[in-house]
């Protein structure tokens, strides 16, 4: 039984990481949004499984938040934005997919090795979870760095947040307050970024951030 429990948790957390890799590779915006939704769904399952394991009912709330906000609301809203901005068919020039993937693998390896080594006292499940979470966070950051489109950067940012949720649920006894406040801050960030996307678009006719650089003042 114990083995099975562990394996399922492992599978779910590992899937989150796998989807992160898929997002790193995907260069079409709509597909990227779908992948993000998948990311959030798996996260919700993972959190729910943790709730079941740790006998912590409040984690179900976390899972619900993940499912409704991140897997449904935000992807749908982003889809609408993408359609309205008329970039849903756009193919992003992702430079150097191969090197980026290799880099991502290196980062994931670093995260896993580090977490397993610095937490020898915790239980195995927590250690694995933390390792996956750290790797997910780093892949999210890598996504933000590698992409130029503002929407992809938003998705990178959201997937970083997913990674932190994964880490937090893996550790036992995270207070509900933290969880809710993180969820709220993400929502606010989403709204603000959404508004900004339209403003940027209105002003500059593109959401490619590189185009913004030439409008910056007082260059040295």
């Amino acid at each position: 039984m114990d083995k099975l429990v562990f394996d399922i948790a492992h599978l779910l957390a590992g899937s989150v990481l796998l989807v992160s890799f898929m997002m790193l590779y995907q260069n079409r915006l709509s597909a990227l949004l779908n992948l993000f939704a998948l990311h959030a769904v798996i996260l919700a399952f993972s959190v729910a499984w943790q709730a079941h394991l740790q006998d912590a009912p409040h984690l179900y709330v976390t899972a619900m938040i993940a499912l409704f906000f991140k897997a449904l609301f935000i992807p749908l809203a982003l889809h609408r934005i993408v359609v309205r901005l008329n970039i849903h068919r756009q193919i992003e020039n992702v430079v150097g997919v191969g090197p980026t993937m290799l880099l991502g693998m290196g980062l994931a390896a670093l995260g896993m090795l580090l977490m397993v080594r610095i937490t020898p006292d915790s239980d195995l499940l927590g250690r694995e979870d933390l390792g996956f979470a750290l790797s997910t966070v780093m892949l999210g950051l890598l996504l933000m760095v590698a992409r130029r489109n503002a929407v992809s950067q938003v998705i990178g940012f959201m997937s970083v947040e997913n990674g932190t949720i994964l880490a937090a649920t893996g550790a036992k006894g995270m207070p509900m307050v933290v969880e809710i406040s993180v969820a709220f801050s993400i929502l606010i960030a989403f709204i603000v970024i959404g508004v900004f996307l339209f403003r940027i678009r209105e002003r500059f006719d593109t959401v490619d951030l590189q185009a913004l650089d030439q409008f910056r003042g007082e260059q040295g």
Binding site: L114, M138, L141, V145, R148, L209, Q210, D213
Partner: peptide
């Protein structure tokens, strides 16, 4: 006067270097 992406890269690089040092 760096671009946002470069700033992000710097932050990211710092994080990775710190993690590597820890490792």
């Amino acid at each position: 006067y760096l671009t946002i992406r470069k700033y992000l890269s710097l932050v990211f690089l710092a994080l990775v270097i710190l993690l590597l040092a820890l490792e």
